[in-house]
Computed example of a mutant assay.
Amino acid sequence: MSDLAVVTGASGGIGEQIAAGLAGTGASVVLVARDRTRLKAAQARIENAVPGANLETEPVDLANLAEVRALADRLGERMPSIVVSNAAVIAPLDDRTPDGFHRTLVTNHLAPYLLLRRLAERPTAEPRRFVVVGASPGGLTRVPVDLDDLNLEAGRGLGWPPSFRPFVAYARTKNMNAMFVYALASRLAGTGTTVNGAHPGIIKGGHLNRHDRGALKVFGALCGLIAAGTATGADTPLWLATAAEVEGVTGEFFVKRRAVETAPHTTDQERVERLWRDSARLVGLPA
């Protein structure tokens, strides 16, 4: 029986590339993304590239926590052995979900927190690998999470110019990803389930920057000049999900297949635990 793997944000970019790589190992792969049409197109491309690929799609809006809970329930019945949390967005600051959350916060952090935690709470004797796609540890050093303003109600410290502030909000959620990796890994130590983070690099070919305006759009265009392709971005997350040499490795953050340190504000135990508790409250789970 083949492994069951799940990839969020799999309708394009590095998510699609990761899904294709997993399909190439013989795993059955569930592609998760919001847009049904783009999901089906990604499925067709992967099937063309990987003959015999066993794929299915889950059209789920990760900015909708009710949909994420339902997805966790469906997947939990099947117990995936690999989950790669890759979906991310840079949304305008006034883009709020019906639940009142900033779309960047819920898509990039609360959704993986809810999904992986719900799956982790289902016991299994089989080994599992959870991989969370983050961002550059070096670049993120300067944008610590504002634990008093996770949902950007006050919007302190987002800097200038205003068009760049959505990127700073995004960067904070990427630091949340690293903090979540450490918190979940510590809780799952010794269970056979590993949790690791990865920076894919600056990558072109995705839809992360589709809402960019002004200075942020210029910044994105400049980054595109040095950006690598999706295969490069998928390499480290795919390696973490499949490679024998990282079997049993947990609670680490990787760049180019090397474990690296993230900023002290992401490893501070008090901060990590506070983010865990506040995230639990926001998604309606006990701490």
Rank of each mutant, 00 (worst) to 15 (best):
H211W: 06
V195L: 04
T124V: 13
R281C: 06
V132Y: 09
G12L: 01
G284H: 12
S279M: 10
Y170I: 02
G13C: 00
R129K: 08
T262N: 13
M176E: 11
E56A: 15
R78L: 08
N86E: 11
V181P: 06
T232F: 02
N175P: 08
V60A: 00
A91G: 06
A198G: 13
V84D: 04
V145C: 04
E77M: 09
L140R: 01
P123Y: 04
I14R: 01
L158G: 13
A263L: 09
L282D: 02
L31T: 12
V32K: 00
E67A: 15
M79E: 15
R281Q: 12
A66S: 13
T124N: 12
E47M: 08
H265P: 09
V30M: 00
T141P: 07
A72D: 05
G134K: 00
L140V: 02
G52W: 15
P123A: 10
P137Q: 05
S11P: 07
A66T: 14
E153W: 06
P166Y: 11
A111K: 09
N151T: 12
A88D: 03
P237G: 00
L119H: 00
R118Q: 14
G229F: 01
N151Q: 10
V218K: 06
E121F: 08
L22N: 04
A228N: 05
T266E: 11
A221P: 13
F130I: 03
V132M: 13
I202W: 09
T25F: 03
E47I: 11
R281F: 12
E261Y: 13
M1W: 13
Y170T: 06
G192D: 07
R129G: 04
A125Y: 00
E153F: 05
D61V: 07
T173D: 08
F130E: 06
P286A: 15
V50I: 15
P137M: 14
G138M: 11
S136G: 07
T242C: 02
E153C: 13
R78Q: 14
T267C: 05
R277P: 00
L147F: 14
D73Y: 10
L225E: 14
A44N: 02
G157K: 13
A183D: 06
A53T: 11
E77N: 15
E270R: 13
G190W: 01
S279R: 04
P237C: 02
C223H: 09
D278I: 00
L147R: 00
W160N: 11
I203V: 14
V272Q: 07
E245L: 06
T57S: 12
I46H: 03
Q43I: 03
P264F: 10
A10R: 08
A169R: 01
D212Y: 00
A5V: 04
L216V: 07
Q269I: 07
L55V: 09
P166I: 05
A215S: 12
A20I: 08
T194M: 01
E77T: 15
R96Y: 12
E245Q: 01
R96D: 01
W239L: 12
T242W: 03
V32G: 06
V143E: 09
G24K: 10
G192N: 02
M79G: 02
A280M: 14
K174V: 02
A221K: 10
A221Y: 08
A44W: 08
D149V: 14
E270W: 10
L208G: 02
M79S: 15
D95Q: 03
P162N: 03
C223V: 13
A231S: 05
V133I: 15
L62H: 11
G52C: 15
R165F: 03
A41G: 01
V29A: 08
